[in-house]
Computed example of a mutant assay.
Amino acid sequence: MEYIKGFTFGWMSKKGDFLKPEARDSLRLLKERTAINTVIFALAALQDTPQSTEIDFSGDHMVSDEELIGMIQYARSLGLRTILKPTVNVRNGTWRAHINFFDLDVPNEPTWGEWFESYTRYQCHYALIAEGTHCEMLIVGCEMVQAERREQEWRRLIEEVRKNYRGLISYNTDKYQEDHVKWWDAVDVISSSGYYPMEDWDNQLERIEKVILTYNKPFFFAEAGCMSRTGSSSIPNDWSIKGKVNLEEQAQYYKVMFEKTRSKEWVKGFALWDWSALLYDEEEAACDGGYGVYGKPAEKVIKDFYSSYSLPLKSTPSTDV
């Protein structure tokens, strides 16, 4: 698999956002200023609560199919590879990792079967779009920690998706969960959210490598990044951390992450988090404490890495499993 020099684009974009000229300008700037070769379009369907079984992927909270297709086609006109990543959020703010149901069906209670029926419709809908627009990969879920134990349902979902899409299929597990998913053999590419503390990359890469050896599958970080906020480099997954804007800490995090992963031949790239379809003004970058890198020192760190990256000398993975 070719190395993924990627960025997640347009997260939480709403109906009509991709039709705005600013969105195309943003995608063009993303390529020019970070040297990506791949863009990941992440979508956010909604269910009302963690125990709701109906997933809404047709409301105004999502870009329309037509504008998504148009943006994918525009990305390809820029020479970018494209990955589609349909995810689900909970309307009441609960993190999707906590979507959960009884393991045994109980009368008058919502069931995993009902939820997966709706979730499969959702994934198959976008599988058809991914197929029609020649996306190189489809990521069929993200950080669904409680749901991951439902091995047979995931296997059936992937079988259904393959009826609609012929490209590579991945699943994006959460940080620290790489060695807990039991159905990695069903996907083509293993991926995870690499929000690891800056000082702990060596330990986590050693652990993940054992999973990759076991399944002999390509791997990349489908999410990774750090806010430009003091303290974020130690807990980069915490978007609610309080701290002063700190552009240098964000840049340093990227430097360390790239340094630690560059020598790992089995790490096949990143889909960094994240680049907005509707950017803040560049002069406001110094006051922005979020994950965005537009106009910040981290932007140059990323461009330098992506521009200069070449495959490392093939290393021999550790056999201490």
Rank of each mutant, 00 (worst) to 15 (best):
L247I: 14
D174P: 02
M227I: 03
Y254I: 00
S228L: 05
G59F: 04
E206G: 11
E283A: 14
V106A: 00
A42P: 01
N100M: 07
G70D: 15
D17L: 09
M198E: 07
E160R: 14
A75K: 08
G231V: 08
S52K: 07
R166N: 15
Y3M: 12
G141M: 04
F101C: 05
E54S: 08
E153R: 01
G289E: 06
A75S: 10
L205K: 07
T319M: 08
A224S: 07
S307L: 02
A42W: 00
W112N: 07
S118M: 04
F270L: 00
S26P: 14
S228W: 11
V245L: 12
S118K: 02
Q51T: 12
G16Q: 11
G295I: 12
S13W: 01
Q177K: 13
F102W: 03
S310R: 14
P50H: 03
E160S: 15
R121K: 14
T82L: 08
E299T: 07
S192Q: 13
G292C: 11
M257N: 05
S26M: 02
Q123T: 00
S77G: 13
I72W: 06
S240N: 13
A42F: 01
V301G: 07
Y3T: 13
L27Y: 09
A35M: 01
P312Y: 11
T214L: 14
Y176M: 07
K85D: 01
A44N: 06
D274Y: 06
Q146C: 13
R207E: 13
K182Y: 03
W275G: 05
M71C: 08
Q152S: 11
V106L: 14
I235K: 10
T53Y: 04
E143I: 08
R24E: 15
E248L: 09
S52N: 13
R91M: 09
F102H: 12
V106M: 12
A147V: 02
Y119W: 05
V106R: 09
K182R: 14
S233M: 03
S58P: 00
I72E: 09
R155P: 00
L78E: 12
N172M: 00
L46N: 03
R149H: 08
Y306I: 01
Y122T: 04
W275L: 06
A45F: 01
N216E: 12
K260G: 00
R162D: 09
P218F: 11
P110L: 15
P110N: 09
R149E: 13
W201G: 07
P317K: 05
K85I: 02
W95I: 01
R81I: 03
N37P: 04
S64C: 05
Y294Q: 09
D320A: 14
M62L: 13
K175A: 14
